[in-house]
């Protein structure tokens, strides 16, 4: 990358995310495409932009130590090319992955779980524990960001609104009105994605990102203060924890009913109905946690940035060891 402008690099990364999402559609991975589009082209771009606004968009130095890096990269790529030369060809139906384990998902999941979207069946039931791990990862990131970025409440109460315009809305009436009429539709779409994951692409994670995007849009248009009034940061934290607990409690209930962890058959008398109920609740848990963590992270960054601009957040505690 020869570009020195970090803003341009971020935009390129965003385009890359979008392109890979379209590639995933071409590869039949619609759920993955949905997620990659919302993450690669959405949330990660947003976060990068916020960070660049703190750190400055210009890179100062030319790159260095390219030779060691080149050596590592060439070695790794040679190994990879060597290793992949034995692999089954692209699209070949007789590759091992299409003949072991996966056929059961394709052939039997309709009888066992009765959810048309097989990807949802796999991640919410067959491999529900992985997805639980995923929710915990997201929660960990949220708490980690809070631990790093949270500005002490004392510093916040002292902070005054900035001199510059507080939100776009004061300047742009049109944007404000258009956005206001858009919110119901965004929420409706998010709800659709949340509850339609059984039948088509979508599910808790994607819905959570859309929900979060709506809130972030609100914060961008009406100012951070207005947004934190709508939902208090402390409430968001609790909700994020609640999502994880909701997911886990499905497992606890199945345990108490005499099944193994996440064995939804034990939720209700009818196993199929149990599977449906289990998937519904865990997707809800995923949705809640993802929404809250995304909002938490974005608010955390923005509040920190504001405090940084006012030079109140940084206490001169460094250098004590």
């Amino acid at each position: 990358m020869l570009l020195k402008d970090l803003f341009a690099v971020t935009m390129l990364l965003s385009i890359y995310g979008l392109l890979s999402a379209t590639f995933f559609v071409a590869m039949d991975a619609v759920d993955v495409a949905f997620t990659e589009a919302s993450v690669g082209a959405g949330i990660s771009t947003l976060l990068l932009l916020v960070v660049i606004s703190v750190t400055g968009r210009r890179e100062r130095r030319v790159r260095h130590k390219p030779y060691a890096a080149l050596f590592v990269v060439i070695l790794t790529s040679m190994l990879l090319v060597f290793g992949t030369s034995d692999m089954p060809y692209f699209g070949s139906a007789d590759a091992p992955i299409h003949n072991h384990v996966a056929p059961r998902y394709l052939n039997d999941s309709m009888q066992e779980i009765n959810v048309p979207n097989i990807v949802t069946a796999v991640l919410a039931s067959y491999r529900a524990f992985d997805t639980f791990g995923e929710v915990v990862v997201i929660f960990t990131a949220g708490i980690g960001v809070l631990a790093l970025m949270s500005v002490s409440s004392k510093a916040l109460s002292k902070s005054q609104p900035l001199n510059r315009p507080r939100g776009l809305y004061e300047q742009h009436l049109v944007i404000r009105i258009v956005a206001k009429t858009l919110f119901p539709f965004i929420f409706l779409f998010a709800l659709y994605v949340q509850f339609h994951g059984d039948f088509g692409p979508g599910g808790g994670f994607q819905a959570g990102v859309i929900f979060a995007a709506a809130f972030i849009l609100y914060a961008m248009l009406f100012g951070l203060d207005a947004a934190t009034k709508v939902i208090k940061p402390a409430v968001i934290e609790l909700l994020a924890a609640l999502g994880v607990l909701l997911y886990g409690s499905v497992g606890i209930v199945t345990l108490l009913n005499g099944g193994n962890f996440f064995d939804y058959d034990y939720l209700l008398a009818d196993p199929i109905a149990g599977q449906h109920l289990g998937i519904l609740i865990i997707e809800l848990g995923v949705g809640i946690t993802v929404t809250c963590v995304m909002i938490m992270i974005c608010f955390g960054f923005s509040l920190r940035r504001r405090a940084y601009e006012q030079k109140v957040a940084i206490r001169p505690k460094e250098g004590a060891v």
């Binding site: 990862v137 990131a141 980690g144 631990a147 790093l148 460094e318 004590a320 060891v321």
Partner: peptide
């Protein structure tokens, strides 16, 4: 990754920059 992410954050909580 659960371990790693939490450990990164824990380490970063040290007092020294």
């Amino acid at each position: 990754e659960i371990t790693s992410l939490s450990v990164y954050a824990l380490i970063a909580m040290g007092r020294h920059r």
